[in-house]
Deep mutational scan, measured.
Amino acid sequence: MATKAVCVLKGDGPVQGIINFEQKESNGPVKVWGSIKGLTEGLHGFHVHEFGDNTAGCTSAGPHFNPLSRKHGGPKDEERHVGDLGNVTADKDGVADVSIEDSVISLSGDHCIIGRTLVVHEKADDLGKGGNEESTKTGNAGSRLACGVIGIAQ
Rank of each mutant, 00 (worst) to 15 (best):
A2M: 09
K4P: 08
K4G: 09
K4M: 05
A5T: 09
V6P: 02
V6F: 10
V6M: 07
V6Q: 07
C7P: 01
C7E: 02
C7S: 14
V8R: 06
L9K: 00
L9G: 00
L9R: 01
L9E: 02
K10A: 13
G11F: 11
D12C: 06
G13F: 09
G13T: 15
Q16W: 12
G17E: 00
G17N: 05
G17T: 03
I19D: 02
N20I: 06
N20C: 06
F21L: 07
E22T: 08
E22G: 09
Q23L: 15
K24I: 12
E25A: 07
S26Q: 15
S26N: 07
N27G: 09
G28A: 15
P29M: 15
V30R: 04
K31I: 14
K31V: 09
K31A: 05
V32H: 00
S35K: 14
I36M: 10
I36T: 10
G38Q: 10
L39D: 00
E41H: 15
E41Y: 15
G42W: 08
G42P: 03
L43N: 07
H44M: 13
H44V: 04
H44Y: 04
H47I: 01
V48G: 02
E50A: 12
E50Q: 15
E50C: 15
F51S: 02
N54F: 12
N54A: 14
T55W: 02
A56H: 09
C58K: 02
C58G: 01
T59C: 05
T59L: 13
S60C: 03
G62E: 01
H64Q: 03
H64L: 02
F65C: 06
N66W: 02
N66H: 06
N66Y: 04
L68V: 04
L68S: 10
L68Y: 14
S69R: 14
S69A: 06
R70E: 15
K71C: 08
H72N: 02
P75H: 07
D77K: 03
E78R: 14
E78C: 15
E78S: 10
E78N: 11
E79H: 07
E79G: 09
R80Q: 04
R80D: 02
H81L: 00
H81F: 01
G83I: 02
G83F: 03
D84G: 02
D84N: 00
L85S: 01
L85G: 04
G86F: 00
N87K: 00
N87Y: 00
V88C: 07
V88K: 02
T89A: 08
T89L: 08
D91H: 12
K92A: 15
D93K: 14
D93W: 11
G94A: 08
G94H: 11
G94E: 11
G94Q: 15
A96Y: 03
D97Y: 15
V98W: 09
S99Q: 04
I100R: 13
I100A: 11
E101R: 15
E101H: 12
D102N: 13
D102H: 05
S103P: 11
I105F: 06
S106C: 07
S106E: 15
S106D: 15
S106W: 07
G109M: 07
D110F: 05
H111V: 14
H111I: 14
C112N: 13
C112H: 15
I114Y: 11
I114W: 09
R116L: 00
L118V: 13
V120P: 00
V120Q: 02
H121K: 01
H121T: 02
H121S: 01
K123N: 08
D125N: 03
D126Y: 00
D126M: 03
L127K: 07
G128M: 03
K129L: 08
K129P: 01
G130H: 08
G130P: 08
G131E: 12
N132L: 10
N132R: 10
N132P: 09
N132W: 08
E133C: 09
E134H: 15
K137H: 06
T138P: 00
N140S: 07
A141I: 01
A141K: 01
A141S: 06
S143K: 04
S143L: 09
R144E: 00
L145W: 10
L145T: 13
L145A: 07
L145S: 09
C147G: 02
G148S: 07
V149L: 09
V149F: 04
I150D: 02
I150N: 04
I150T: 05
I152K: 04
